[in-house]
């Protein structure tokens, strides 16, 4: 078991290192001189040279890479071109919001997806099943900003049920602050869950149909267990693990969706930060944001894997 965790952790570190390396070289090899973008307008060649030295861009690429890695291990992702603050600080102040949003979406999708998938599989060909199937195919075609804007206009502006921007009302304290937090979280969260849920439930339904065809299910039914009990006790137990793994594979997409929803709702997470940094061409910030999100996704995936292992008696030794 320890060996499993160590092996998975090594793989996670390797993944993060490769992601960092690829982005580093990709960005250095691409056309475009970043120093030209620090300040618009006229710059003398001397000023440009000074800037290049400041950012270490005059050194050989491998030296730059090594220096970058050394700094990165110490938690330094460079300085933002525009905000003139350390990138790490800026991102860390925004990351909790993205974690809250994406994490809640992760949990809620699983909580709604499992019963939906199981129910659809058990009532194969019935109306519920057909709705899940339709929702599953449509889900792939949903554009996150479209859903977010729809919710914002209908539930936010027209009905006034939810606030349409921000993450919390700064004037609230105690219990009211928590309420405000969830009140603000609702619409961005629903946008993500609506987009994820259909395809997720559909895949679970397919898994479940396979499980229901297995011998041990027939034997459980043969021993006289009720269909309900067979379904929810025996079959569901074997569907939960793939459900978790499957959601783990969706993490990258989930974070991408969070970037888009945060943009629509002015939610103060890393996604909204990326949107602002794009407008200001703040490359160190963009690169740092990608690295931090990649680390988040890889670590979350690691946790999901370890959790699956703990839940799976066949792997647990």
């Amino acid at each position: 078991m320890v060996e499993f965790i160590v092996r998975r952790s090594m793989r996670a570190i390797l993944t993060i290192w490769i992601a960092i390396t690829v982005t580093f070289f990709l960005l250095r090899l691409l056309p475009g001189d970043p120093t030209l973008l620090v300040v618009e307008g006229d710059m003398t060649p001397e000023m440009q040279q000074a800037l290049r030295e400041q950012y270490g861009l005059d050194k050989p690429m491998l030296t730059q890479y090594w220096l970058y890695l050394v700094e990165l291990v110490q938690g330094n992702l460079g300085t933002s071109f525009r905000q003139l603050q350390p990138v790490t600080e800026i991102i860390l102040s925004r990351l909790p919001w993205t974690l809250l949003l994406a994490g809640s979406a992760f949990v809620l999708t699983i909580l709604l997806g499992i019963p939906l998938g199981v129910y659809a599989a058990a009532h194969r060909g019935k109306r519920v099943d057909r709705i899940v199937q339709m929702f599953g195919i449509t889900g792939h075609a949903l554009f996150v900003p479209s859903i977010a804007i729809l919710l914002l206009v209908v539930a936010g502006s027209m009905l006034g049920w939810f606030p349409i921007g921000g993450a919390i009302d700064p004037d609230t304290r105690g219990l009211a602050a928590y309420f405000s937090l969830f009140h603000h979280l609702a619409l961005p969260l629903f946008s993500l869950v609506i987009v994820q849920l259909g395809p997720y439930a559909l895949t679970l339904r397919t898994n479940m149909l396979e499980v229901l065809g297995e011998d041990y299910i027939k034997s459980a039914r043969g021993r006289g267990l009720s269909p309900q009990r067979t379904l929810w006790r025996h079959a569901l137990r074997n569907a939960i693990l793939p459900a978790l793994t499957l959601m783990g594979l969706q993490l990258g997409t989930l974070v991408g969706g969070a970037v888009l929803t945060e943009t629509v709702f002015a939610y103060p997470g890393v996604g909204r930060l990326i949107y602002e940094a794009v407008g200001q061409l703040d490359y160190p910030l963009l690169q740092g944001a990608f690295i931090m999100l990649a680390i988040t996704v890889v670590v979350a995936n690691l946790i999901t894997d370890v959790l699956s292992m703990l839940l799976n008696p066949r792997i647990r030794t």
Partner: peptide, 8 residues
């Protein structure tokens, strides 16, 4: 597949 591709 394990990386957040949109930010990349």
């Amino acid at each position: 597949l394990s990386l957040p591709l949109l930010p990349l």
